[in-house]
Design a protein around this nucleic acid. Sequence first.
DNA 1: AGACCAGCCGAACTTAATTCGCGCATGCCT
DNA 2: AGGCATGCGCGAATTAAGTTCGGCTGGTCT
Lengths: 152, 152
Amino acid sequence: MDELDSAIIRNLQLDARLTNRELARRLGIAPSTCLERVRALRDRGVIKGYHADVDLSALNRPVQAFVAARLRPMSRAVIDNFKAAIGALPEVTAMYVVAGDDDFLIHLAVPDLEHLHAFLIDRLSERREVISFRSSVIYESIRNPVLTELPG
Amino acid sequence: MDELDSAIIRNLQLDARLTNRELARRLGIAPSTCLERVRALRDRGVIKGYHADVDLSALNRPVQAFVAARLRPMSRAVIDNFKAAIGALPEVTAMYVVAGDDDFLIHLAVPDLEHLHAFLIDRLSERREVISFRSSVIYESIRNPVLTELPG
DNA sequence: AGACCAGCCGAACTTAATTCGCGCATGCCT
DNA sequence: AGGCATGCGCGAATTAAGTTCGGCTGGTCT
């Protein structure tokens, strides 16, 4: 992980479809060298994959929300079961198992508030292990590229 | 947005570096046709970009957390200022302006709990407009590909 | 010093992206 | 119904990119 690797990661985070040649040109190295570096990063698992960023509104799912849920009991069986069941729902775009006031944080993308409400009632309230939840509609999302270095 | 477009999106969400030929082969269409479709999706903004998914642990930032913050007053000036200031911090990987109990949800990636604590003390507590916050360390993250169709 | 190793380079080759003119189907107008 | 325009997909030809590999260089260990 030298400065070259960091630069590669920075570039591919912003545009994963950069051609190898263009990436090499930006870094001032030969395409073959660049290719080898990128391959090594993938093999080492530093780069886990490449994903298209899709506009959820264009897919008729303009309403996004976080739902924080609390579960009881917090046994492995309950957690695994909940993860599998909720993760299989198409409305769910991400799920986080967290410490703190809540146990799960669920990110949703749905067509409208009615769908959100229906999800809460039909998918969460229905479940015995869910003892409470709070939902937060998302007004705005901002994503930051992850710089490798943490100054300070 | 027909079934072909949906299939393209589904495939590129999983692997944005699929070659156009391979994508065309999977869909059973000609590479030139496929290229035209993908280009149209980008031009229409349905595909917003392509991003490398980087392993945060490999970048020496294995600890992730959500921080929910409440601000006062919720004036545009305060919000915009807070967004700009927090979004510029390298620890921050994403930020959400939300309705509900909290006003902001901040996603962090840091090297260890000490850094997380330092962030909370030095970056959030310091700010006058932050009247309270809660942090939740993330035990596990699960991402779901966004299917275009919402069955039901 | 000599030998080794790792990493980078660039030319040669293979594969893919891209362009463009053709043909087919669909729907519309007369 | 016939003719016509339009949109869409196709495939061959061209351009560009990905990939391999042998050799060079600079640093290191003995």
